[in-house]
């Protein structure tokens, strides 16, 4: 086939073109591009933050920086970086996905999470409920979710980082309440998922199912996603219900060493992440409904983020790797309790 002989050279020359376009080494005072590979609900946050950082960096170093964004399900995004998506930094939903960059891709050192303050999570969030206006089913706390006749919307924990937080928050609640044990926690989560009519593959998909398709009485969601829904999408259509106890969600960030070193962007990539901890970065996080780490900034937004008794993954599950292995891996607890519903 004559085509073969020129397909490969053509593609290679294309590859070369795209390389010279994207992989420019930064000259001082020149321009530099960063690729931030993130998860779904951070789009709006990083659009604002990128502009703020570009301004800060230009003032500080005189260098023009352009930050490109890529968003998707957290696990999928980590997979793409392992498969060769040249991220300079990743800002994902959970540490487990970032661990994979080390375990499966050898792109970052094992101690990546100790390189920045607060477990490398410059902002946090938690898991809350969104109900329809007026809270017709009277949802107040976790126990209301397993009642007969309540339908709950949450994404698939196999594919969605947000869904794993939801699941672990429910588990933690049942385990920590008086008389709670592994067995009661499993029964609680099993009952909860019995009320879930459909599992979307990502957090945004679930939000759309709840808000646009009008399915379900309760949406279990990130607090930031819940704010976005109630304040910007469906004003006066939804209400947030904050449960008495929930999980501290710490979305971590890191420089992808192998990519940043190859592209010569380490300095600006590190500055980019550090700037998330600055007052301006923290304010932007709060503006986009993430709980800031800085005490001073958090105090200013105290009315926005009500106090919840928060437990961490480390407290209850001994870290992400253990939680992942016990609950979400093939043959884990989730596989045993979840029976897809015939609709």
């Amino acid at each position: 086939m004559e085509v073969r002989s020129w397909v490969l050279p053509l593609l290679l020359s294309l590859a070369a073109c795209s390389k010279s376009g994207g992989g420019d080494a930064p000259a001082p005072g020149g321009a530099v591009t960063l690729l931030n590979v993130s998860y779904d609900p951070t789009r709006e946050l990083y659009e604002d933050f990128n502009a703020a950082f570009a301004k800060h960096w230009a003032a500080k170093s005189g260098q023009k920086v352009t930050i490109k964004q890529s968003h998707g399900g957290s696990g999928k995004q980590a997979r793409a970086v392992i498969d060769g998506l040249e991220a300079d930094v990743v800002t994902l939903a959970l540490a487990y996905d970032v661990d994979m960059l080390h375990d499966k891709g050898q792109l970052i050192p094992a101690n990546w999470q100790t390189r920045l303050p607060d477990n490398s999570s410059p902002y946090t969030s938690t898991i809350v409920f969104v109900v329809r206006k007026g809270n017709p089913k009277g949802i107040k706390d976790w126990e209301d979710l397993v009642k007969e006749g309540v339908t709950v919307i949450t994404p698939n924990p196999k594919t969605s980082g947000g869904a794993r937080w939801n699941y672990l928050a429910a588990w933690g609640h049942a385990l920590r309440k008086p008389g709670g044990s592994e067995a009661t926690a499993q029964a609680f989560v099993e009952n909860l998922f019995r009320n879930v009519p459909v599992l979307d593959s990502g957090a945004r998909g679930s939000t759309t199912t709840f808000a646009e398709r009008g399915l379900g009485d309760v949406l279990i969601a990130w607090e930031n996603e819940a704010f976005l829904l109630t304040q910007e999408v469906g004003k006066d259509k939804f209400e947030i219900v904050v449960p008495s106890v929930s999980i501290l969600a710490e979305p971590p960030v890191t420089v992808v060493d192998k990519n940043a070193d190859k592209r010569g962007t380490r300095a600006v990539a590190e500055a980019y992440l550090q700037y998330l901890y600055s007052d301006e970065g923290q304010e932007l996080a709060a503006k986009h409904h993430y709980r800031p780490r800085s005490q001073a900034v958090a105090a200013k937004h105290a009315s926005k983020f009500p106090g919840v008794s928060l437990f961490t993954i480390a407290d209850v599950f001994g870290g992400w790797k253990k939680a992942q292995a016990a609950h979400f891996d093939e043959g884990g607890v989730f596989d045993r309790i979840y029976v897809p519903k015939a609709r």
Partner: peptide, 20 residues
């Protein structure tokens, strides 16, 4: 990057997937 031709392409600084 983990694929059959990945290492070969990476050595030559060529990007095929996640690019045009």
């Amino acid at each position: 990057r983990q694929g059959w031709l990945g290492p070969w392409l990476a050595e030559r600084n060529l990007q095929v997937i996640f690019a045009v």
